[in-house]
């Protein structure tokens, strides 16, 4: 019983990180029909921002970094990664909007450059971010079931992010413009919405979310220049399963993929688990080719 409860908890924990990664992809895919293969590198940038902040803080104070810097790292990872995303969108992606396959290749090139940059700056070996003291314990539920504090904190941060995205999309005027462009780009444009601006902001927002995911990954294990590559493929599968640019679909898909991965991994091995998930997604697409949810456009 306890074992299964822990598996479900781990599944939820993995799902929330996947969700954070996939949301950015789903938003820009729904809006611009663009998939960013450098998204994994955005995760890596978020992780290294956290690491760099820790190094800087301990160099300034002379001691180990304090709890506060770790919390500051969350918005900082969002801002730094978002800024990089904004730059990439402005300098590259907006020239390629009608050519989605070319965007794949161009963003892959950006990803290669970013990875090599990280390797040049921080070195190729993995580095470890030291988590604050208060995150080291766990919350005991029952005799054998201990939920790690770190994972709980990640889930909390993701929930806050989700609330923020909900507010942005459905309660702010920027979000209203974004939804308008998603539904009908030409109509929104002729009604005076600056679609270019919406595109850039959405892309930057998605990149920022990936940055927060990178911050979360520093809590789970060591980080390296190719940190993002492994997670990002799962996130692509989430986007495909969830349907075009659908927030509810993406959330559902992230939980399905996260849970399936964890359950299969527990039942068999990590590799066989991944193969099974892939096969199930392909078979599911036979039944619902557009994914879990469809975007209704006019």
């Amino acid at each position: 019983m306890e074992v299964w409860a822990l598996q479900i908890f781990n599944g939820i924990s993995l799902s929330t990180i996947l969700l954070l990664i996939a949301l950015g992809l789903a938003l820009s895919f729904g809006l611009m029909n663009v998939i960013n293969l450098a998204h994994g590198e955005f995760i890596m940038i978020g992780a290294y921002t956290t690491y760099a902040l820790q190094i800087a803080a301990s160099a300034l104070t002379g001691g180990p970094s304090s709890e506060v810097t770790f919390l500051i790292a969350i918005p900082l990872a969002f801002i730094v990664t978002g800024a990089v995303g904004f730059l990439v969108e402005r300098s590259l992606i907006r020239f390629l909007y009608r050519r989605p396959l070319d965007t794949l290749l161009a963003t892959w090139g950006v990803g290669l450059i970013l990875q090599q940059l990280a390797r040049s700056i921080f070195g190729a070996p993995n580095v470890q971010v030291v988590a604050p003291q208060w995150l080291s314990g766990g919350v005991a539920l029952g005799s054998d079931l201990v939920l790690p504090m770190k994972r709980l904190f990640i889930i909390l941060v993701v929930l806050v992010c989700l609330a923020g995205i909900y507010w942005y999309m459905y309660r702010s005027s920027e979000g209203r413009r974004m939804r308008a462009v998603m539904q009908n780009r030409d109509m929104a444009s002729s009604l005076g919405v600056s679609t270019r601006r919406v595109d850039s902001l959405t892309f930057a927002l998605g990149a920022g979310l990936a940055g927060i995911a990178g911050w979360a990954l520093t809590l789970i294990g060591p980080i390296g220049p190719s940190l993002g590559t492994f997670y990002v493929v799962d996130a692509f599968i989430v986007v495909i399963l969830g349907g075009l640019g659908q927030i509810p679909g993406t959330i559902m898909a992230a939980f399905i993929i996260g849970m399936l991965n964890t359950i299969f991994e527990f039942g068999t091995t990590a590799v066989v688990g991944k193969v099974l998930v892939f096969v199930m997604v392909i078979l599911f697409l036979q039944w619902k080719p557009a994914g879990l949810m469809r975007l209704r456009t006019r």
């Binding site: 590259l92 020239f95 390629l96 050519r99 070319d102 965007t103 290749l105 161009a106 892959w108 090139g109 950006v110 990803g111 290669l112 450059i113 990875q115 090599q116 390797r119």
Partner: peptide, 14 residues
């Protein structure tokens, strides 16, 4: 080489 390859991807497309 890594930088070059990355630039090649971007350049070949753009």
């Amino acid at each position: 080489w890594q930088y070059f390859l990355g630039a090649l991807f971007v350049g070949a497309v753009l």
